[in-house]
Design a protein around this nucleic acid. Structure first.
Lengths: 220, 220
DNA sequence: CCAAAAGTGTTACACGTACACCCATGA
DNA sequence: TCATGGGTGTACGTGTAACACTTTTGG
């Protein structure tokens, strides 16, 4: 039986959650949109295969990469029997290697307008978004998608995009700062307003402390 | 590459959460404790393979059965390269076929005292318990483990077992009844006290209504 | 009448939610 | 000086958490 991994690579740009999609170059379904994947090598851990695909496309290593699940319907690939292990990754769009991506015929698509995808890849995307929305409530998953330095309004618009609904700026700021996992910097981001917005960075050490005692990241 | 499914079958009895384990009869590691599994057939959906294994052992169909994840380290099985898709199931211990289970050399083990398991099966059990604890907070997962008719104290002790901590009986009863998904019956269970405890049944229709609008099952 | 489990209410506090105005700045 | 996004505080209601006694009935 053939065993493949498929990678769902998410990024955040222009206040939109985006996913990296590819024009298929191999049969069947040449020219259709799909996720990118690869077969798992005989001497390779499945997790490593996913990491390899991600690195080949984006040049990134050691980023958020998590197993989504196994897609294993007998008839899912019309060619031959093949099961796929879907992985999803959250990356900083600013850090990926644009040249590598272009060479693979990839492009970013807003998750609110995803074209038709081959096989069961559409289902994978749907499942991944569901999982991201759930996980975002229990840990600060979103930080993986922002730059090292970010403003509170940027963080808010990311959460608004993930939850697909508007959030109150006062309540959002109060809650997010109350966790004590953000360090306020002396710099301001002047690109989006005349007044400028203070930049923050994520304090990973404090977060680890907090998550061990168990905390709820839910924001309403 | 070989592709297998392994089933984690959980039940609830004597106020303890239990898992069905097997004495291995095939090489390698004959005589060691393990989960039960099977290879996925070429023309078989992976989900169906898990259902088949569950039915072969317990005689049960159409019960709670969910994918846990893929365990795919290259060296996980010392024999040959094999990835495993772990599934976990929650069953009513009273409904399984004891004869079938005995014929397969299986026995129930409290999750608080699990023997050493072959390969990465111990990791699977650990991961499944973690997932059950998380899922129990978002939907009434526990009902799959109780009989059709059950008392509030029974339900409470199940939740105490899943969360591994005591709960306040007044708060528990108040919260669980406030969801409106339990039907009180006219019967009493007289087996655990002189006074007897009223039996309830789960109102699946009301639950579906409620879960569509999204609700939080968390109990503190 | 005693033991043992079932069942019930209230109060204090924390947290979530709703809501409107001033601030800082570049153009 | 004005337009634009950034930033702040409070009051109210809901829900959680803590807590002790009465009820029932078989032995």
């Amino acid at each position: 039986m053939h065993v493949a991994v498929d990678c769902l690579i998410f990024g955040f740009d222009d206040n939109e959650l985006k996913i990296l999609l590819f024009k298929r170059r191999v049969r069947p379904a040449v020219g259709k949109w799909s996720l990118i994947g690869s077969f798992v090598q005989l001497d390779e851990d499945v997790d490593d295969a996913a990491g390899r695909v991600l690195a080949e496309i984006t040049g990134l290593k050691d980023v958020f990469l998590e197993q989504l699940g196994c897609y294993g319907q007998a008839n899912r690939d019309p060619g031959f029997r093949c099961i796929s292990l879907a992985y999803f990754s959250l990356i900083r769009i600013t850090e990926y290697d644009r040249e590598l991506v272009q060479r693979h015929g990839a492009s970013w698509h807003s998750v609110s307008k995803i074209p038709e995808l081959v096989f069961d890849h559409g289902q994978m995307v749907e499942d991944a978004l569901k999982k991201i929305r759930i996980e975002a409530r229990h840990r600060p998953i979103g930080f993986e998608l922002l730059r090292e330095k970010f403003t509170v309004p940027q963080l808010q618009s990311l959460y608004e995009e993930i939850y697909a609904r508007p959030l109150d700026p006062r309540n959002f700021r109060k809650k997010i700062l109350s966790f004590g996992i953000l360090n306020k910097l002396d710099e301001k981001d002047m690109t989006t307003s005349r007044r400028g917005a203070f930049l923050y960075e994520f304090n990973r050490r404090k977060y680890v402390q907090l998550s061990q005692t168990g905390f709820d990241f839910e924001i309403k």
